[in-house]
């Protein structure tokens, strides 16, 4: 529904910007982050179609995304453990707007996946997880709450398109029974 044009003098954006008192400045802040020991290996794993976690030798949790340390036991994590890509949806959301608050043509469904990784107590708040897009899930699945607990698995991009990035997984999709 578009608002009706109301009477008065309309100011164009460029006129507004020409008013004294407005200083325009576009920051040039570019970075080149080191992913580090843990995430570099994790990203290499994604390229090979594998999800890798790191084991805490004390609490036996397998951390995904991996860390070189366990934040609770505060010791170095040790072995790499491949975890199955399968898991359940912990929570999900439908977004109707993009990052610049523009209305999306097709709403985006995003979720947090609780992966089937060992070392976590049943029902514990912490888990090995990934934040990603959900596909094959409807808006109604999310709004009704049906999506929560849904079993999902990664939909991988073809090997030749993988770059060692989170985008090597296209999305998580429901596991067909």
């Amino acid at each position: 529904m578009k608002p009706e044009r109301t009477p008065g003098r309309y100011i164009r954006e460029e006129d507004l910007r020409r008013l004294p008192g407005v200083i325009e400045y576009k920051p040039v802040a570019r970075y080149s982050y080191s992913a580090g020991q843990a995430l570099s290996e994790f990203l290499r794993g994604l390229k090979e179609g594998r999800i890798l976690g790191k084991l805490c030798p004390s609490c036996r949790r397998v951390l995904v995304p991996p860390r070189v340390y366990c934040e609770f036991c505060f010791i170095h994590t040790t072995e790499w453990v491949e975890v199955p890509g399968t898991g359940v949806v912990e929570t999900a959301v439908v977004s109707y707007i993009g990052t610049a608050r523009e209305r999306l043509e097709k709403p985006e469904i995003i979720g947090v996946i609780r992966l089937d990784a060992p070392g976590y107590r049943e029902g514990s708040f912490d888990f090995a997880g990934l934040f990603h897009r959900l596909c094959g899930v409807t808006e109604d699945d999310v709004k009704s709450g049906r999506v929560i607990g849904m079993r999902v698995r990664p939909r991988w991009r073809p090997p030749e398109e993988r770059r060692g990035s989170m985008l090597d997984i296209e999305c998580f999709e429901p596991v067909q029974p």
Binding site: S34, A35, G36, Q37, A38, L39
Partner: peptide, 16 residues
Amino acid sequence: VVPELSFREMMFEAAV
């Protein structure tokens, strides 16, 4: 340059 560690990993190594 400390290319081998992320800033979080550097923080952990110093802390330990």
